[in-house]
Each structure stands twice: as C-alpha cells, then as structure tokens.
Amino acid sequence: MTSAPVVLAFDTASACCAVAVIRGDHLLATRVEPMTKGQAERLLVICEELLAEAGISLPEVDVIGVGTGPGNFTGIRISVSAARGLALGLGVPAVGVTAFDALGYGQTPPFACAIDARRDHVYFQSTAKDGSARDAALFHHAECPTHEGPLIGAGGDAAAVPTAVAIAHIAAKRRNETPERPAPFYIRPADAAPAKDAPPMILT
C-alpha cells in the first residue's frame, strides 16, 4: 500500500509568509507570519520549523506546492525560486498554484475570486457553474464584470481554506500531471521602479 504523499506548500505573494505541511488529507502543521519585507530570509526557516513540528524530515517531502500569484512581484519570485530549488534538490515535483485556484478551493461553482491589486484595482476571475474559469484580468474595483455566485477574496467572503493549506491539497492532487516548473503568474507588468532588494534569481 502506497503511503499518502507529504506536501510542503508555501506562499509569499501577499504581505506574509504562509506555509503548510500535509500528509494525505491530514494537516500536520501550518503558520502564517505577517510581514511586508524579509520573506526571503524567513521562508525556508519557517519551512524547517514546521517540518520539525510535524515530525517530518526534508527528504520525506514528496511534493512542493507554491503560490504563483498574482500578488507582490518580489514575493512571488521568492517563493517560486525557493520551490524550484527545493524540488531540484529533493528530486520531487514542484507544483505551482495560482491565488485564484487557492481561493476557489472548496467552493462550489459558480463563484468569482478577487485579489487586492492596490491602487483601487483587483485581480478578478469568475468560474461558471460547469467549473470553467474565465481568463483572469485586472480591473478597477468598481468595474468588475458581473458574475454568478459569491465573491471570494477582496471585498467578498473569506476563502474556505487558508491559502497555504489549499495550495498543499491542490499540489497533492496535481503531482502526477507532470507539471512544468512553476512560474510567476503576474497578470500585469511589474512597476517601472525596481525593488531596492533584488529578489533571488529563478533557476532555469
């Protein structure tokens, strides 16, 4: 009998480090640390602490799940870079999960998801009753398209499952789909002014 996969999942697309460890359907450990900067220094430390809390050694991890955005550009690159590096070192798949998929996890279609994009804008995506999703796009918060069902996220209902936990469960389900290496999902181009602290390079 094959044991349930152990998934280490994390997300730094918003102003926090969110990490979760699951085995099969069981949540072993999770943490969310609010922070506006410093994710690059804290992310792997939190991962190590949660694995220890769960009684899991790093080589026992079967899948890496990572939030790919949309959200903070530097934060997304930090997570994606870390996921690629860990997956390469462990020889396991890294599965990228968008913030829309994480928000929609556990929801019954139809519904729509909105993510704060600042400057009175949101990233928006709607999902029809048949489960098909429209292309995600950036809208002024007052100009979002009409949609069926509840709005999840910015200006709406809370997600059914915390972000990192949702990413972990989705990654577990998609681990055998031979996913491409996770890549940032930005929707809009980065601001013209570069960040003072350059994010780590993404492995190619």
Score class of each variant (00 low, 15 high):
residue 161 V to W: 14
residue 125 Q to Y: 10
residue 136 A to Y: 11
residue 154 A to W: 13
residue 148 E to Y: 05
residue 133 A to V: 04
residue 148 E to N: 02
residue 141 H to R: 04
residue 122 V to E: 05
residue 141 H to G: 02
residue 159 A to H: 15
residue 171 A to N: 14
residue 148 E to T: 12
residue 158 A to V: 07
residue 148 E to Q: 12
residue 153 G to L: 03
residue 143 E to I: 14
residue 193 A to G: 01
residue 179 P to L: 11
residue 147 H to P: 12
residue 152 I to M: 06
residue 162 P to W: 05
residue 144 C to M: 15
residue 179 P to E: 09
residue 149 G to F: 11
residue 124 F to A: 01
residue 135 D to S: 14
residue 149 G to L: 00
residue 137 A to R: 01
residue 172 A to F: 02
residue 149 G to H: 08
residue 172 A to I: 00
residue 131 G to W: 07
residue 138 L to W: 08
residue 132 S to K: 09
residue 157 D to M: 15
residue 173 K to N: 14
residue 150 P to T: 04
residue 132 S to W: 03
residue 168 A to Y: 01
residue 185 F to A: 00
residue 185 F to R: 04
residue 156 G to E: 02
residue 140 H to Y: 05
residue 176 N to D: 09
residue 172 A to G: 11
residue 190 A to T: 14
residue 167 I to V: 07
residue 182 P to Q: 00
residue 177 E to S: 11
residue 130 D to F: 09
residue 169 H to D: 03
residue 173 K to G: 11
residue 133 A to Y: 04
residue 187 I to S: 06
residue 187 I to Y: 01
residue 171 A to V: 10
residue 177 E to I: 13
residue 175 R to K: 05
residue 134 R to S: 10
residue 122 V to L: 06
residue 132 S to N: 03
residue 189 P to E: 15
residue 162 P to R: 08
residue 180 E to M: 06
residue 151 L to E: 14
residue 154 A to H: 15
residue 140 H to I: 14
residue 187 I to F: 04
residue 177 E to N: 11
residue 139 F to R: 01
residue 172 A to E: 04
residue 144 C to H: 08
residue 176 N to K: 08
residue 145 P to D: 10
residue 136 A to K: 05
residue 188 R to W: 09
residue 144 C to K: 14
residue 137 A to F: 02
residue 173 K to F: 12
residue 128 A to P: 00
residue 192 A to E: 13
residue 138 L to S: 13
residue 134 R to H: 15
residue 146 T to L: 02
residue 133 A to H: 12
residue 160 A to F: 04
residue 124 F to I: 02
residue 147 H to I: 07
residue 155 G to Y: 12
residue 166 A to L: 12
residue 169 H to G: 03
residue 160 A to T: 12
